[in-house]
């Protein structure tokens, strides 16, 4: 394989698009894995979405019934809008905080970065169930630390759990806290790749830290910023475990996001067909979001 690839590329350089074998060799392993562990099961799932499969035994094809029912269910739209709201809140917050932290950690001026780094990293290692108990300890309505101080200072307990919007806000904060480690790692690697000479040139020109950040760091790490935004958007729209452990989609069902909706109305009631249909709709929504972001990103890059 390698030999043949090099034969092609061994000839004088051509335009990039003329290489076929080399890229094919490079992606071969992932193509095989993709076909085996994504396409194959996804096709099975897609077939289920047109049936009334319950997880056991035989099933009948029901055409587009599952999709039809899904689009007729108002709970689905509630979940969808709540999911979009969550993503809109979570992605920018996580982006800003992680980028700030990564910058401070890389800065040569800050002292004690090695200890601080562990503090920022640990939340990402915690299982959702532990994140849940930690944030309930902070924002529990009845016995939480924040309300403890609010009441000590003479205020009224804030309904962190029984008010739907505050409850969502707590999850946004908790999730940003927990996901910082991930985004921060990507940012650190990207910032370390920015050539130091750029900063030196800017320093000589008398640019302060803010100018340097906006005119050097931010443009140079743009490709990584794009990863963080796109992946965090997808992850946010699939968020489920943190909600389960923090407020169980509550109060009531007001903070049920799409995956929880799929899980509760589909899998837990043995409606695998319906759950599969909803999952593929979610996938289409995410695909649309991703493609829009890719197009916007290309426009920005080419500007």
């Amino acid at each position: 394989m390698t030999k043949r690839a090099s034969d092609v590329s061994g000839s004088p350089p051509r335009r990039r698009s003329t290489y076929t074998l080399a890229p094919l060799v490079l992606i071969a392993a992932n193509v095989v894995l993709f076909a085996l562990f994504f396409v194959w099961p996804a096709v099975i799932g897609l077939v289920y979405s047109f049936t009334n499969y319950t997880g056991v035994g035989a099933f009948q094809f029901v055409g587009l019934d599952n999709y039809h029912n899904l689009f007729g269910d108002s709970a689905f739209y509630d979940a969808l809008t709540r999911t979009l709201l969550y993503a809109v809140l979570f992605v920018p917050l996580n982006f800003a905080v992680s980028l700030l932290i990564a910058n401070v950690l890389v800065s040569k001026h800050a002292k004690g970065t090695s200890v601080a780094r562990i503090i920022f990293f640990i939340p990402w290692l915690l299982s959702p169930i532990v994140v849940g108990v930690l944030w309930r300890w902070l924002f529990g309505e009845n016995f939480g630390l924040v309300n403890y101080f609010v009441e000590k200072l003479g205020g009224h307990a804030i309904p962190w759990q029984s008010n739907a919007d505050l409850s969502l806000l707590v999850v946004v904060m908790a999730a940003s806290w927990a996901w910082t480690g991930f985004s921060m790692l990507l940012f650190i690697a990207a910032i370390k790749n920015v050539p130091v000479s750029y900063y030196e040139a800017a320093s000589l020109d008398g640019a302060g830290p803010w100018r340097q950040f906006f005119s050097i760091t931010l443009p140079s790490i743009a490709p990584t910023s794009f990863i963080v935004i796109l992946l965090n958007t997808i992850n946010a729209m699939k968020e489920y475990p943190v909600f389960v452990s923090l407020n169980n989609g509550g109060p009531g069902t007001s903070n049920n996001l799409l995956v929880q909706y799929i899980y509760q109305t589909g899998f837990q009631r043995g409606q695998i067909g319906y759950a599969s249909a909803a999952s593929f709709v979610l996938m289409l929504i995410l695909m649309a979001v991703a493609i829009i972001q890719l197009i916007v990103n290309r426009r920005v890059e080419n500007r």
Partner: peptide, 20 residues
Amino acid sequence: CILATTMLPGEVMLAPEFLV
């Protein structure tokens, strides 16, 4: 295609993936 692998909820892939 690679991006698509992140887009299906894990729960829906679990049973078919197990069969595979």
